[in-house]
Amino acid sequence: MNIYYILQSLIDGLLIGGVYSLVAIGLTLIFGVMRIVNFAHGALMMLGMYTTYWAFNLLHIDPYLSILICVPVLFIIGAAFQKFLITPILDAPEHNQLLLTLGVSLFLENLAVFLWSPNYRVTRTSYEFAYLYIGDLSISLQRVLAFLTAMVVTGIVYFLLSKTDLGKAIRAASEEPRGALLMGINVRRIYWITFGIGAACAGVAGSATAPFFPVYPTVGGIFVITAFMVVVLGGMGSVLGAFAGGLIIGLADAVGGMIFPGAMKSIISFILFILILLFKPTGLFGSKN
């Protein structure tokens, strides 16, 4: 094992970690604002991947350009999900919402099987084998683009939440829904906007990974299990935590991959995850409750 191999693995881990961050940010946003664990998040990412796949194959739109289609499509799907399915049972016990997101997840996955078959589909770009070379290191251009996409979207979400009135209203509604309502903030509207943003993040993550990951109906699960770990690691509801957590898990997987054989590469991530649960259950950036 030489230094180049180590560096190469770490860079690959960091790059894919950026995608985990993006998936986790959508998840943590939805959880932080509505207290809903969105089991359909993986299915939403899958829809993003298919959107990109079809845009590429039917309309010859570059995967990274198809993000511009994916964002509004997934925003509308997410917003409609919240508005028409979750809002009516907002006052029901929390497990009902869990079951609902689980049900929607199963529905979307089966719909994908029905519409597009369970086959693996691959998006082949012309720059599929393009690499950037730094010394002896070679970095896949697509993975760099995926990472940059994730970083840009993360930055946009962060800016939105911290600097705009809409973002402040989202934070306000997440902390004190009643206080927000009494300030004239339409909290239910904030909820569907937030779900829309979260779904769009999942969709973008799907678009960004489609060029180097096969698309099939249950593909989202792979990323979302990791994203759940990232959310807990970073602190439930913390966007900054999800961002940092994604990169950390990406790196931890890379280290794991160097030490342990294939399927066991996540062992370091799991150990980190358990340590956090034991010693800082609120996560790295989490606060109260």
Binding site: D165, A172, E176, R178, G179, A180, L182, M183, G184
Partner: peptide, 24 residues
Amino acid sequence: VQIPEGRCVFPSLTVKENLEMGSY
């Protein structure tokens, strides 16, 4: 406009941001 019992300010928002939310 009602100022609720128990205040319901937004704890992690700054004072300025809380005030901005008043004029949302």
